[in-house]
Design a protein around this nucleic acid. Structure first.
Lengths: 194, 194
DNA sequence: CCATAAGGTGAATCGGGTTCAGTATAGTTC
DNA sequence: GAACTATACTGAACCCGATTCACCTTATGG
């Protein structure tokens, strides 16, 4: 919509705000209030609101960038590893990435509550990444074929939501491994039930 | 602390508040404001605060009850089914229970953010439940022995956090099945990595 | 160098949780 | 069953953080 291409200072401030927000979220700074983020970026709250409709919009944008970074990975992985390994690595990246600090997670919660479309979009993209990797594995015969990216993503969701806890990183690795093991089967007879 | 045993009307109100809160959360009533809950219970906000330190304290109590109910299940399951089946059923119950509406989940988020001890307690109890079931399965030789309740609980966490989405119930079933499949192996060589 | 639209500012507003002085009542005692 | 008092209840006032907006500042292009 902005036919006119953002004034120089505006672009600078917008960037500063995104950076400040990311830092604040990553630092988990108990709170991460709008005012704090604005100050950290060296601008007034009003400016923040000029660039982002609301607090959530800001979080969304930061999140969107994270997702974009993450979704750039699969192609590289597929080139360098066999399907199995590529998938395994991506699963870990998924954890690593989504774990960019509890702060981010906390910040995201407000969005999770709202059912913003950003999330649908992000989910779709990630699911697509997984689909590609799963398909490769299925073609190679090492990964079961009855699980799609959407499902796997959901399964991984829990791992990504791991909270603070001390040993979360190890836990995440073990759980990811557990799920990965579940994937490496010629599809069980049928575990659905209740 | 209350050596004196709560006045009759007080007990009644407390009960009404808990019921109202549970209903509000289950209904997912966009918001579930303190005021609404109080009104629903037929009391003033002040009364709510007399019984519960804060909004979160109320959510906590509701949650605590849910957990208590859930943790009562395993013994019955173990009596009626073989270890494998008992575990499988409990996993589904875990989902069913934790899914008591997105409202509850949303309400819980505030607590997840705070690192309240209630959660540690709940986790511990649930993990203990799972440990029992896992041990039985391991003894029977059908379940791998290198996964403990704590880990499994975390893995299931994701499933329980499934949001609104239309087909969440099916998804939950499939993911639970996926994880369950991961469990039914004589322990893979070693999936840990990054 | 001016004009002016784009951008920035921060005090005021708003909404929802929380507090507390004032009022009502269950339970108890005579 | 009337008085007494510890226990409860009420709801308007308060607080705090997100959001708005009337007014000021400055990049940009002519």
């Amino acid at each position: 919509m902005p036919s006119r291409p953002l004034r120089a200072d505006a672009r600078r401030n917008r960037e500063a705000l995104l950076t400040a927000a990311r830092e604040a979220f990553l630092a988990g700074e108990a709170g991460a209030h709008i005012e704090d983020i604005a100050r950290r970026a060296g601008v007034a709250v009003g400016t923040l609101y000029r660039h982002f409709e609301t607090r959530e919009a800001l979080v969304e944008e930061v999140y969107r960038q994270e997702v974009a970074d993450l979704c750039a990975m699969p192609s590289a992985l597929s080139e360098r590893h066999d399907p199995d390994e590529a998938l395994r690595r991506f699963l870990f990246l998924l954890v690593e990435h989504a774990a960019v600090g509890r702060g981010m997670a906390a910040a995201l919660e407000s969005i999770l509550a709202t059912d913003s479309p950003v999330f649908d979009e992000a989910r779709a993209r990630m699911a697509a990444c997984l689909d590609r990797l799963l398909a490769a594995g299925a073609a190679a015969g090492t990964i079961r074929a009855d699980v799609d990216g959407r499902i796997l993503l959901r399964a991984m969701g829990g791992v990504c939501n791991l909270r603070d806890t001390e040993g979360w990183r190890e836990d995440a690795a073990r759980i990811t491994g557990l799920i990965f093991d579940g994937l490496r089967r010629p599809a069980a007879e049928g575990a659905a039930g209740a």
